[in-house]
Amino acid sequence: MLNERVSAAKKIASELHQAEDALDEAMICIARLAATLPTARRDTNMSAIVGQTAMGKVAHALAAAGEVRQLLTDAHLALTVTQKEVGLGTRMFGAGVKPPSGMLSDEGSNDQALADVVTPSFAKAS
């Protein structure tokens, strides 16, 4: 039974990290686009009005991606609670950089009920 729980936890950690990485990559791409749009407008000597609606939409997309990223980090923290609830205690499923103590609870988490959980134990493997 313990082996099945550990196996499930490893699969969940892997899927979570893949989702986090994919979202980070999407945010990087959106940020590059957000920089390219005004650069292209300026380089082609177009009016500031040209492409403004598109620039606003891209900026909104980047902000929305940031909100999604926060939700994923909240889920990450929730899974540390679940991990303990299913009897896995503190286990590392890889070596990751832990946030400074208290950082996650002070950085605008969407789930303040998890404020006392500051050390994710489903850390990324290296």
Score class of each variant (00 low, 15 high):
35 A>K: 05
84 K>D: 08
41 R>S: 04
20 E>Q: 11
32 R>E: 15
33 L>I: 06
6 V>T: 12
58 V>K: 02
45 N>A: 09
82 T>F: 05
78 A>C: 06
123 A>N: 12
79 L>W: 05
6 V>F: 09
34 A>S: 13
9 A>Y: 03
107 E>C: 13
22 A>W: 00
102 G>D: 06
38 P>I: 08
94 G>L: 06
93 F>N: 02
80 T>V: 11
21 D>L: 05
119 T>F: 15
81 V>A: 12
1 M>Y: 08
13 A>Q: 03
72 L>H: 00
84 K>F: 00
55 M>S: 14
115 A>N: 14
50 V>F: 04
3 N>W: 07
99 P>G: 03
94 G>A: 07
32 R>D: 13
73 T>E: 11
44 T>F: 05
58 V>L: 07
28 I>M: 05
80 T>F: 01
59 A>N: 15
30 I>F: 08
98 K>C: 01
37 L>A: 09
53 T>P: 01
92 M>Y: 12
103 M>C: 01
103 M>V: 05
102 G>P: 07
72 L>F: 07
76 H>I: 02
31 A>D: 14
65 A>Q: 07
82 T>G: 01
11 K>D: 13
107 E>V: 10
43 D>T: 07
14 S>N: 07
104 L>W: 03
84 K>R: 14
126 S>G: 13
27 M>H: 07
4 E>S: 06
10 K>Y: 09
16 L>R: 06
29 C>S: 14
78 A>Y: 01
9 A>S: 04
65 A>S: 13
105 S>R: 13
89 G>Q: 04
119 T>K: 14
43 D>H: 00
25 E>M: 04
125 A>V: 12
61 A>R: 01
22 A>S: 15
82 T>S: 09
90 T>Y: 08
44 T>Y: 01
20 E>D: 02
47 S>F: 00
61 A>F: 08
13 A>G: 05
33 L>F: 06
48 A>R: 08
1 M>V: 05
30 I>S: 10
56 G>M: 14
36 T>G: 01
110 N>I: 03
31 A>T: 12
15 E>K: 10
98 K>D: 05
118 V>W: 09
111 D>F: 05
121 S>Q: 11
25 E>K: 03
126 S>M: 09
46 M>L: 13
3 N>Y: 11
112 Q>M: 14
18 Q>W: 00
14 S>R: 04
52 Q>T: 14
54 A>W: 05
96 G>C: 03
56 G>S: 12
95 A>N: 10
122 F>N: 13
93 F>S: 01
27 M>L: 15
88 L>R: 04
108 G>P: 10
56 G>K: 08
77 L>P: 00
74 D>G: 08
15 E>S: 11
53 T>S: 12
